[in-house]
Write a protein that binds this DNA or RNA. Structure first.
Length: 612
DNA sequence: GACGTGACTTAGGATCAGTCAG
DNA sequence: CTGACTGATCCTAAGTCACGTC
């Protein structure tokens, strides 16, 4: 196979596979399907229909107009990687004390379970029931297994532990070699050529089989994810580009399509799981396409900023409308704006019960006195939102009106939904949708917080970075970005606090020593400065060390369950950070790690005067 | 409108790799 | 040299939103 993509950015016309030939015929449902004459195999090439397909298979790119959906003209890549097939270990679990001999398919599934054992996950009733149902279904009837509880997976667990140990204990060299080999394989799939440019691909491997782990109380947690084979995978390739070779022997892609209206290189679906959606393999965040989308996203948020007064006035007006539906639109928009809530699309019974603004139920809200309300619900990823907030008196009144006479399980905003709300937002500003408020509010919060910084000449970079992180934290809190408290948080904190105590003690000692020295300059103590001047220097240093520790402790506490990274990656316009850093002489790498600097390369050279 | 779904962004946790103190 | 810690990267679930269909 050609390695052109791997090691050069030059155009490759020699990617593996066969060059596609001209097309014929029309197909169905959104794609145009064509057969290619070919000696030994049939390949169907599917081309996106919509408008362009009118032109019998070739796009006339010159005619692309502004609002065309075409995302690229040429796209060439090596397809997708598959995880290795399962190698049976032959260890039998015990069924009622007797070895249960499994075939490789059964054994693989038993091993998934054994791998998960020992965690809370496998103790959940839903998980056990789902897994039991699926596992028993693949066992042979004659085995007579009636319950998961009758199977002892311990032999497999032991085996897994042993192999893990062995793998860990391999010589350093061998591990390194394996890593390098893997990196090489990865590199083969890691890049594509899109519109003549070499770009990184974000994900190159399809998901391995295993046990589905939903978040929160997911009704399907514990079900099986089946092995994805090339027959489940569709690849998207430029019409005149090489078709990636399917290098799993004896297998072939489900389809090869030419869909320049989409940016994915590959997509796959676990046909065994009805409710599972299509998964995609996309480009990396530093790619042109992703960057362009990001720029547009922040552009929209900035536009919202310019119109925010007008928009707020509008939804406040609606909030008091006689029409209940209008009032709900206004109030929901108010909450989305004020609390940075997500819009809240409807969800099915087959998902965890989480909500956003439009799907809030009466049971999620408590009306308090003094214009306050308490919101308590599970949002995306089953993250809890629990806050008591003072709202505008009119909002308070409106909410009282919506709640009246409803049962706890009824919708707070029963006359609207996410798409109705977004429709309304479109009237206010073209392209406006609910999520733009989150981007806007995150960005404006960061900017306002950072603007509070008045440089004290003596502030060093460390202090400035601390200030930045505090601003970042405000945004994370606004967006309710949380993380699990680390398992041994208390120990870790204690260790830090001990260290701080030590530094404090050290400082005290130095200070007393200095006083003593002043009384009697002949005093000499081991490891202590000899002169008053030397004391001053040492004290200064010790103070600094103490402050650093102090900061570590407070950061640890303040970030206990707050995730700063999500807002950095997705919400705060990077130009705010870039310009603040430049204006305050903070090296950008102190606040943006390497991947962020790559993702936001487009923002790195922004003018000092730029404002969100 | 309700509903399904395609394509994309957003999300937290797991894992990996490098670092640092003991 | 080792084990704990940390930051970066990987993984994939879970949202949003537009669009087509009925």
């Amino acid at each position: 196979m050609s390695d052109k993509i791997d090691n050069s950015s030059s155009h490759s016309n020699h990617l593996s596979g066969k060059k596609r030939k001209a097309s014929d015929g029309n197909g169905s449902n959104g794609y145009k399907k064509r057969k290619i004459s070919n000696e030994d195999e049939e390949e169907s090439i599917i081309t996106n229909t919509k408008d362009s397909i009118k032109m019998s298979g070739r796009y006339n790119y010159e005619e692309d107009d502004e609002d065309s959906n075409i995302k690229w003209k040429t796209l060439e890549h090596h397809g997708v990687r598959f995880p290795p097939f399962y190698t049976p270990h032959g260890i039998a679990p015990l069924h009622k004390g007797k070895p249960l001999i499994l075939n490789p398919v059964q054994e693989e599934i038993a091993t998934f379970w054994a791998q998960a054992l020992g965690t809370d996950f496998t103790e959940k009733e839903t998980v056990r029931n789902n897994f039991e149902e699926e596992f028993l279904a693949v066992l042979d009837k004659e085995m007579g297994v009636k319950s998961l509880n009758n199977i002892d997976f311990d032999p497999i667990v032991k085996h897994i532990e042993k192999t893990r140990e062995e793998r860990n204990n391999r010589p350093r060299e061998e591990k390194k070699r394996e890593r390098e080999e893997n990196a090489k394989l990865d590199a083969h799939f890691r890049y594509c050529i899109i519109d003549g440019e070499k770009e990184r691909v974000n994900t190159v491997m399809v998901e391995p089989p295993g046990i589905f782990r939903g978040r929160g109380e997911h009704p399907h947690a514990g079900k099986l994810k089946s092995r994805i084979l090339p027959e489940n995978v569709t690849v998207n390739v430029g019409l005149d580009n090489m078709i990636p070779k399917c290098d799993v022997p004896g297998h072939a892609w489900k389809a090869v399509v030419n869909n320049p209206e989409a940016t994915w290189l590959g997509q796959f679906k676990d046909e065994g799981r009805e409710k599972a959606g299509t998964k995609y393999l996309f480009l990396a965040p530093d790619s042109k396409i992703k960057s362009k989308n990001d720029i547009m996203k922040y552009g929209k948020a900035k536009k919202l900023k310019e119109n925010i007064e007008k928009i707020r006035a509008d939804y406040m007006r609606r909030m008091v409308s006689k029409s209940m539906q209008e009032a709900q639109l206004g109030t929901a928009t108010y909450l989305i704006d004020k609390l940075a809530l997500r819009v809240g699309n409807e969800k099915s019974e087959d998902e965890a019960d989480t909500v956003g603004c439009c799907s809030l139920r009466v049971e999620h809200i408590t009306i308090e006195k003094d214009n306050k309300i308490t919101l308590d619900f599970l949002g995306k990823d089953s993250m809890r939102f629990h806050q008591t907030i003072e709202v505008h008196p009119l909002a308070h009144k409106a909410i009282e009106r919506f709640v009246k006479g409803k049962k706890p399980e009824e919708d707070l905003f029963h006359l609207i939904n996410a798409s109705r709300l977004n429709e309304y937002l479109k009237e206010l500003m073209p392209q406006l949708s609910a999520k733009v408020f989150r981007t806007y509010n995150a960005s404006i919060t960061l900017q306002n917080e950072l603007a509070k910084y008045e440089e004290k000449p003596r502030d060093d970079v460390e202090k400035k970075v601390k200030f930045y992180k505090n601003a970042n934290r405000e945004v994370a809190i606004l967006c309710n970005h949380q993380k699990a408290v680390p398992k041994n948080f208390d120990e870790q904190l204690k260790r830090l606090e001990d260290k701080l105590k030590e530094k404090k003690k050290k400082l005290k000692e130095l200070q007393t020593h200095k006083k003593n020295l002043a009384k009697d300059s002949s005093i000499s103590k081991p490891k202590m400065p000899k002169t008053s001047n030397a004391c001053d220097t040492a004290i200064k240093k010790a103070k600094k060390a103490m402050e650093t520790e102090e900061y570590k402790v407070s950061e640890k506490i303040e970030n206990k369950n707050i995730a700063l990274s999500t807002s950095k990656i997705n919400y705060m316009d990077p130009r705010i950070s870039v310009t603040w850093c430049k204006n305050n002489e903070v090296p950008i790498e102190k606040v943006f790690e390497k991947t962020l600097r790559m993702k936001f390369a487009w923002a790195m050279s922004e003018d000092l005067e730029w404002k969100f």
